[in-house]
């Protein structure tokens, strides 16, 4: 049974999103145990659901997995960085992605192209994990810029009170970007390996645009690690690189529409 655990996860993610948004609506913050516990329960239900999915091909399973990793990273951000505000973005995003996956349908739409199922699953898992990390870097950068603007403008409202300190957001951005980039790189390499070993051809547009995106991501990591960019400049670089990833994905999907393949 795939649907029931996914529906339970969807409900718990929606609740986690509501808990994250509540303080911004003037309501009292939920206890930390609840803010952590609800998404963790959702993750548990989601893992059970994903474990029962027989094929990871197609947009829906990928979106479901992306939602799972986003919530896992949200819980990690809350647990390790005390950055509960991350949930303001990841909560609704994960809920939306999982909802969309359920609408598209998680049932397999075709058999795997080759017998290399385990490698294929590894490629998808690693790639989606990398993508989720880059999304987290983007979110941390966005939170950074919002808090930066509030602090500079001397506005002491909800953002000032509820967002994490600037430095912590910068650290979260740094860590997500530095871990996300090699993870995505590994995922892409595994993907090429699986395709070539399986004898499947890779679309030239995918290769060219994929390389360009990789270079942009590499630049964002490079300026952070090599040139020691921090703060606002690094946040802009991070946002630019993730936006590039999204734009390229949208462009490629427009060129080859359909839900049978993620890319």
């Amino acid at each position: 049974m795939v649907l029931v655990p996914h529906l339970i996860a969807l409900a718990l993610y929606a609740l986690a999103a509501a808990l994250a948004l509540a303080p911004f609506a003037g309501l009292r913050s939920a206890p930390r145990a609840l803010r952590l516990g609800v998404p963790l329960l959702g993750i548990a239900a989601h893992v059970i659901g994903i474990a029962r999915v027989t094929s990871f091909l197609g947009v829906a399973p990928t979106l479901s997995m992306l939602a799972l990793f986003l919530v896992a990273l949200q819980a990690a951000s809350e647990g390790l960085f005390g950055a509960s505000a991350v949930g303001v973005f990841t909560g609704p995003l994960a809920t939306g992605l999982l909802g969309l996956a359920l609408l598209i349908g998680l049932a397999p739409e075709g058999p795997p192209p080759s017998g290399r199922g385990a490698w294929s699953i590894l490629h998808i898992t690693v790639s989606v994990l990398g993508l989720a990390m880059l999304a987290l870097a983007f979110i941390a950068a966005a939170l950074y810029l919002l808090q930066f603007r509030e602090l500079k403008a001397k506005r002491f409202g909800a953002v000032f009170r509820l967002f994490p300190p600037l430095e912590r957001l910068d650290q979260l951005n740094h860590l997500s970007l530095v871990l996300g980039f090699p993870t995505v790189t590994l995922g892409v390499l595994l993907g090429f390996g699986v395709r070539y070993a399986g004898g499947a051809s890779v679309d030239a547009a995918q290769v060219v645009w994929g390389m360009l995106t990789w270079v942009v991501l590499g630049w964002a990591v490079g300026v952070r690690v090599v040139r020691h960019w921090a703060g606002r400049r690094a946040a802009f670089a991070s946002i630019a690189s993730f936006t590039a990833v999204l734009l390229v994905y949208v462009a490629l999907k427009l060129a080859a529409p359909g839900t049978q393949r993620f890319l």
Binding site: Q147, L151, F160, F163, P165, L166, E167, R168, Q171
Partner: peptide, 8 residues
Amino acid sequence: AVAARIFT
């Protein structure tokens, strides 16, 4: 409080 919103 203000300093704590800037530094970790």
